[in-house]
């Protein structure tokens, strides 16, 4: 895949621990094209978060190759090629919502007018207009996570890496945010990498689903979704949706994810 935004070849990462080496990633081969929405699903320890962190240059692989936009992950990080949304919103409690979204822009040295304009647009995009002057603790968990997505989008990186951004939220809020995330993806056309534990979430959001398995962390199956790009919430009751979900579950079972 030559036009891949992200490509991994024979990627391997071994953590040296007190209990001996742990294979977090082994033989991972994957190419992700521009504008794709790829979900990574698997049980804890399957290396899905580690893969995202390698792409973000937060971890150094011990073998194989990764390229992001044709660069090494660290070059891509320096070029600010991606926005990263962590499991926790991680907003600064001493900054208002607007100033939290502004933070990466300040660091990247945008002009005052540009910052104000981008913050306003991003908050509008994630539906937080009117909450500019609120502090994080005055917002619900879902709203905080939306603010953190706005912050990751603010500098308009072409790639969005999301590590279980909705994992700590209840199902109703989660459905709502999934819907909004799809709309956002459609509007911005970004390449999204999304780590999740939830099969429905993965199937609902993705154009492609990567099923992973632990010990060693590896890819079991890569599923291209037949679902249309336009996806109302009730698409989750259609036979096509259930079939994809079934295949994901089969993949997880094949990877011994349901054992012990």
């Amino acid at each position: 895949m030559s036009d891949a935004v992200i490509s991994a070849r024979n990627l391997e990462l071994v953590f040296e621990t007190n209990d001996g080496p742990v294979h977090a990633l082994k033989d991972v081969n994957l190419g992700i094209g521009a504008g794709e929405f790829v979900s990574f699903i698997g049980p804890s320890g399957c290396g899905k978060t580690t893969f995202l962190r390698v792409v973000a240059a937060l971890e150094e692989p011990t073998g194989g190759e990764v390229a992001v936009n044709g660069m090494s992950p660290d070059e891509a990080r320096r070029a600010r090629a991606y926005g990263y949304v962590f499991q926790a919103a991680g907003l600064y409690p001493w900054r208002t919502i607007a100033k939290n979204v502004r933070l990466p822009l300040e660091i990247m040295g945008y002009s005052g007018a540009e910052m104000a304009d981008r913050v306003a647009r991003m908050l509008d995009l994630v539906g937080l207009k009117g909450f500019e002057k609120k502090f994080p603790w005055q917002l619900s968990g879902g709203m905080q996570q939306r603010a953190s997505i706005a912050r990751a989008l603010a500098f308009d990186a072409p790639i969005l890496l999301m590590d279980e951004p909705f994992g700590a939220l209840d199902e109703i809020v989660r459905d709502h945010l999934n819907e909004q995330l799809l709309q956002l993806w459609a509007k911005t056309g970004k390449t999204c990498l999304f780590v999740t534990h939830s099969i429905p979430e993965a199937v609902y959001l993705s154009t492609r689903i990567v099923v992973m398995s632990p010990r060693p962390g590896r890819i079991i199956d890569v599923i291209d979704s037949p679902l249309p790009r336009e996806r109302p919430l009730d698409i989750r009751e259609t036979p096509e949706f259930l079939e994809v979900a079934h295949r994901v579950r089969e993949g997880l079972r094949a990877g011994h994810s349901y054992e012990d």
């Binding site: 937060l58 990080r77 991606y82 499991q87 991680g90 600064y92 001493w94 933070l103 990466p104």
Partner: peptide
Amino acid sequence: ALQLDQMRTWNASRWQVFWKLRWPASM
């Protein structure tokens, strides 16, 4: 660690990590 990783994803300098994160966090 999360806040420091965040700063890293934005390619923040040590100086920026200090003034934007460590200093206000220590108040």
